[in-house]
Design a protein around this nucleic acid. Structure first.
Lengths: 201, 201
DNA sequence: AGCCAGATTGACACTCAGTGCCATCCACGG
DNA sequence: CCGTGGATGGCACTGAGTGTCAATCTGGCT
C-alpha cells in the first residue's frame, strides 16, 4: 500500500517543496505584492503554468503553509474525551494548533507576520479561518448532541474560540515567538471559559 | 451648511449611486465572478477607468455597501455611558449595527447573502471586519483605561463581540430577514456576557 | 463676460494574475 | 518494445488594476 507509488508522487512533492521554498524566501524579503509569480517560478526552475497546477493563487502558497492548523484543531477537538466541558476541549485544540505553528520556529513566525501585515494575505487567511469555524461548530455540535443549524451555540462557541486563537496568535507573533503559546492560550481561555460552558453549567 | 454643497460634489454622488446600483443589480442576479467590470460600467454609462476611481476593486462595491457598519459600531460603543459594563455597551453596539443593516430591508439581505456565498467577497469582508475589531479594541481600551497593546483583554473582547456579530448576521440572513436582530443579539450576548465582563466583575 | 486653477473624465497602453488548450515527455504496465 | 496516463511547458487569451495624458467641466475672480 505504501510502496506502490514511489517515484511520480515523490517528484511531485519535490516540485511542491521547491516552489514553496522559493516563494516563501522571496515573499518574506521583498514583500507580497513586490514579487511576481514569474520571479517565483524562475527561482524554482519550473514553468509559470506549473505553479498554478500546484497553487490556486499567489496567496495560496502562503496560506497553505498554515493550512493544516485548521484540520489539526478539528482533529484535536474530536480526540478530546467527551466528558470534557467545551472550554477545556477547545483550549487544548487551540493550544496544540498554535504550538504546532510555533514548533516550526523561525519560518512559521515570518509567515505569520507576513500574513498579518499583508491585506491580501490576511483576507485569504481569514476566509480559510471561516471554514475552520464551521468545521469546529460541526464537531462541537456532534460532541454536545446539538444541531448547529438549530441553535446559535455551536457557531458562537467556535467563533469565540477562534477569537481567542486570533488573540493568542497576535500576541505570540508580537513577542517575536518568545511567549509560550500554551501559557498565552491558558490566560485567554480563563476569560472566555464561562461563555463556552454556559450551556452545560 | 446644506446650500454650499457644490454641484461637483452632487455629481460625484450621482455617479457613485449609479455605479453601485448597476453593480449590485448585475452581481445579485448573475453572481459575482460572472460579471465583469466592463459590464458594470456599460450599465452605469461611465468609463472603465472611472469605476476604479470610485472603487478600489470589484469586491469593494459590495463590501462598501456594508462598510459603514464598522464605524457605526465604534461610534455606538463610544456613545454608550462609561458606567455600562462592556457586555452591555458592546451588545448595543452590535444590535444597532445589525438593525441598521436590517433597516435597508430587501437590498441589504441580498448583499449579505451574496457576501456569505462568495469566497472572494467573504475574504474582503472579513479583512474589513478585522479592522473593525482593532477599532473596537482601541475604543474598549479607552473606556476601561487599558492599553490594548499591554493586555489581551481589549483585543479578545472585541473579537468575541464580533464573533457574536457573525452569529447574529448568519442567523438573521438564514431566516430571510424575518428574525428580529435585537432579539437575536440579546440571546447571543446572554451567553458571552460573563466573558466580556470578566475583568470588571 | 472672460479667464484661470483645480478637479473629473475618457481613452490608451501596460503589468500581472489566472485559465484553457495542445504538444511533448516520462514513468509504468503489458 | 510499445501504448497509456500523468506531469510539464509553451502559447494565447480574458480580466483586474494602474499610470499617464489630453479634453472637459466647475467654480471663483476680475
Amino acid at each position: 500500500m505504501w510502496v506502490v507509488t514511489p517515484l511520480a508522487q515523490r517528484k511531485r512533492q519535490l516540485v511542491l517543496d521547491e516552489l514553496t521554498q522559493a516563494a516563501l524566501g522571496l515573499l518574506a524579503t521583498k514583500g507580497f505584492e513586490a514579487v511576481t509569480v514569474d520571479e517565483i517560478v524562475a527561482a524554482a526552475g519550473v514553468s509559470r503554468r506549473t505553479f498554478f497546477r500546484y497553487f490556486a493563487s499567489k496567496e495560496d502558497v502562503v496560506v497553505r503553509f498554515l493550512g493544516d492548523l485548521g484540520s489539526g484543531m478539528r482533529a484535536e477537538l474530536a480526540a478530546r474525551p467527551a466528558s470534557e466541558p467545551p472550554s477545556v476541549a477547545l483550549r487544548h485544540a487551540v493550544a496544540t494548533s498554535v504550538s504546532a505553528c510555533a514548533a516550526h520556529d523561525g519560518r512559521a513566525l515570518r509567515v505569520v507576520r507576513l500574513i498579518l501585515g499583508t491585506p491580501a494575505l490576511l483576507a485569504r487567511f481569514l476566509e480559510r479561518r471561516a471554514q475552520w469555524r464551521d468545521e469546529l461548530a460541526a464537531e462541537l455540535g456532534r460532541r454536545l448532541g446539538l444541531d448547529p443549524a438549530a441553535g446559535p451555540f455551536p457557531h458562537l462557541a467556535a467563533g469565540v474560540a477562534l477569537a481567542a486563537f486570533d488573540t493568542v496568535l497576535q500576541r505570540w507573533s508580537g513577542s517575536d515567538g518568545i511567549a509560550d503559546p500554551v501559557t498565552l492560550t491558558g490566560e485567554v481561555f480563563e476569560m472566555i471559559a464561562p461563555a463556552l460552558d454556559s450551556l452545560t453549567s
